[in-house]
Amino acid sequence: MASLRVATRMFCAAAETAAAAAAAPAKSTRWERVRNSKAGVWCRSLVSDYKEACREIVVGAWGRPAKATVYVTLMGGAGACFYTNPDQSSFEAALLEHSNQLGLLSPWIRNAKSDGHIQSLVKFRNEGRLRHASLGLLSLVYWANYDTDSTLYEAQCSNLSMPWLEFHQRVLDVGFGSRWWMLDSKMQDYDMNEGEFKHLPAHMLVSSPPSVQEVETNERLHKESWLALTMEDEVEEAHVVDSYEEKVSAEPTEPVKEEQT
């Protein structure tokens, strides 16, 4: 009975070993078949090419650090410009913000250049004629002849569209580095109306810088304006008034003579 059990175990172990030996070549053969296929050869060659290119980049950067620094700087700057490239929504938000700033001022205070530029942009926006073009590193805002939803023949015909030679005349703003440069330039001194001073004489249009003595005097007066007030002058004035009243009261008064009737 014991010998039968031992024989059974030996037979099972031999069967398991034979099954494992039969399965191992089949698995390795399948992997070898996939590796040697066209797709496997192409993937291995692609990985080898990338590996060689990376090795050459590292070796070249180590041999020429200045050139590698310039390339990395240019690539980083291009990536930053692409990431901070403003879109059309940012332009409309900036336009509305500047329009509200001008709306809070009186027409007599607004700068004529700032007001005219903002009013023209708002007009193009309300008419649907503002266009935005992204060039990757920067953006352009220009005006078109018709709205995008217009169904007129002139608006739909491609032969009557805007010629490219006139494109530079239609550019309204340039966006770069999260800023709209022409819009910010037009809004400088937007609360200063230069027309108010054009009727002044020539000698009042030019102001000379103050001298050193004038600056020192102004600073001294400014510091003295912050000092606490003293009551010495008032006390002295009150003392003079009191002494004058005592003097007047001490003088003898002449009797008033009655008129004889």
Rank of each mutant, 00 (worst) to 15 (best):
D191Y: 09
K67F: 02
T69Y: 01
K257M: 04
P210K: 15
V235C: 05
A20M: 13
E32A: 15
S139R: 00
G76Y: 03
G177R: 11
A26H: 07
G195I: 02
S3W: 04
T73L: 03
W181C: 14
G103W: 08
A250W: 10
C81K: 05
S150M: 04
S225A: 13
A68G: 02
P201A: 11
V58Y: 11
A23P: 10
L96A: 10
D115P: 03
R64M: 03
E127L: 12
I109N: 09
I118A: 08
A21T: 07
E224V: 00
V171N: 12
F197N: 10
H199E: 15
D233C: 07
Q169Y: 06
Q188C: 14
H168S: 09
P107D: 12
N218Q: 08
K198R: 07
V122N: 09
E154L: 01
E194A: 10
P255K: 08
Y83P: 03
P163H: 08
N193S: 03
Y244I: 13
K113A: 04
L4K: 13
Q156K: 03
V174W: 01
T69W: 02
A23G: 07
A68R: 02
L183Y: 04
Y71A: 01
N85A: 11
R64E: 09
P107L: 01
V248C: 12
S114N: 03
C81A: 11
H199N: 15
D49F: 04
S243M: 13
R131K: 09
E245Y: 13
Q169P: 00
L96F: 07
S45E: 15
Y142M: 06
L229F: 02
L200V: 06
H199Y: 11
R110A: 05
V70D: 01
A18K: 13
E92P: 01
L229Q: 04
L172W: 03
R125Q: 08
E196G: 07
D87Q: 02
S99I: 05
W62R: 14
V171Y: 10
A112Y: 00
C81I: 04
K123D: 12
E245T: 10
L104N: 11
A19H: 12
T84W: 13
T253W: 09
P25R: 07
N36G: 05
V171H: 10
A24K: 08
R220P: 00
K198C: 03
A21W: 00
E216S: 07
Q213P: 00
V240A: 15
E234I: 03
H117V: 05
E216M: 06
L46E: 12
V41G: 04
Q119E: 14
N100L: 13
R9H: 08
L221R: 07
L183S: 08
K198A: 06
G76D: 05
M231S: 00
N111F: 05
D147S: 12
A13R: 14
M231H: 02
W42R: 14
E127G: 09
S134Y: 06
L165A: 12
W164V: 05
G77N: 10
S207L: 12
G175E: 01
Y190E: 06
E194N: 11
V41H: 07
L46Q: 14
W180F: 14
C157V: 05
S89C: 05
E16C: 13
R110M: 09
G76R: 04
I118N: 09
A155N: 00
L105W: 05
W226S: 13
A39Q: 14
L130H: 05
L46P: 04
S225I: 01
E166Y: 06
W108S: 05
V212D: 08
S114K: 04
Q188S: 15
